[in-house]
Design a protein around this nucleic acid. Structure first.
Length: 264
DNA sequence: ATGACTCAGGAACTGAGA
């Protein structure tokens, strides 16, 4: 079973790119972020025609997450618990059944948090604390669990081409990195880092200042695995070439292959 | 030195992104 994440930066503008990538990579489950539309504006029929079930948690104009799955959904829940005032669409959780039991997938779009001297940064840190609490509960289920998405966290200096550029940024501040480590320390495995310690495994290049041409990238899109998922990890990939396509997202797809059947 | 793009909304620009 191949599980992927991709921040598409508007699903309506990126529909053709997304369909082309699905055909090429053949993922079984895909978490999408920044769909930037309401539920009824999501191009559901195009993905259903490509063989996917669709779960959407959108909002008007920005944010928004969705999950595509070749397997039918046993459960779909939306919204990260822990703050009744939070109206931003950044969390979706699904459960599917395989021939060897269930797989649980959380799709997340973690807040950016910039500028750090505004209310946006405490919102980010609060969101990370709420995510940690949820993950702690889910780990007690002892299921294969994948938390996939745009974390807006640069975990380590080698995850940026030029870490000095990011020292005062919400993506790389000590409190951000500490909160990410605290999540990992619950017992999660960063799928990419389980396979490679190489530098340069970037997932985002800014549209500005020729960041792509200069390979001035960062690694901020991650798949974190529960022990029951990590035990089945076979391979990972970062589909960097999607950044060079016509009308690209500023993020590229990241995927993990688990040695679990992709059929019920 | 600074800004540099790209999106949605809604009809000229602003907010947001990272």
């Amino acid at each position: 079973m191949r599980i992927a994440t991709w921040n598409v930066n508007s699903i309506r503008l990126r529909l053709d790119n997304t369909l082309a990538w699905l055909k090429e990579r053949q993922p079984d489950i895909v978490c999408l972020q920044e769909i930037k539309c309401q539920d009824d504006q999501f191009p559901r029929a195009a993905f259903e025609a490509a063989g996917y079930n669709v779960a959407v948690h959108g909002q008007k104009g920005f944010n928004g997450v969705a999950v595509l799955s070749k397997l039918p959904f046993d459960e779909v829940t939306t919204g990260l618990p822990g703050d009744g005032e939070d109206v931003q669409s950044r969390f979706i959780e699904v459960v599917v059944s395989t021939g060897r039991g269930v797989v649980r997938v959380c799709g997340i779009y973690l807040p950016n948090g910039n500028p750090p001297d505004t209310e946006k940064y405490p919102y980010k840190l609060g969101w990370m604390a709420r995510l940690r609490a949820l993950v702690q509960q889910r780990l007690a289920l002892e299921e294969p669990l994948v938390i996939a998405g745009d974390y807006n966290v640069i975990p380590e200096p080698e995850d940026a081409r030029d870490p000095a550029l990011w020292v005062n940024d919400a993506l790389f501040l000590p409190k951000t990195r500490a909160a990410f480590r605290s999540l990992l320390n619950l017992g999660l495995t960063d799928a990419v880092r389980a396979v490679s310690d190489a530098p340069g495994l970037y997932t985002f290049w800014d549209y500005q200042a020729g960041a792509w041409q200069k390979n001035n990238g960062i690694r901020i899109d991650h798949l974190l695995l529960s022990p029951q998922a990590a035990d089945h990890l076979k391979a990972i990939g970062i589909d960097k070439h999607a950044r060079s396509w016509e009308k690209p997202s500023d993020h590229v797809p990241v995927w993990a292959e688990l040695d679990l059947p992709a059929r019920a």
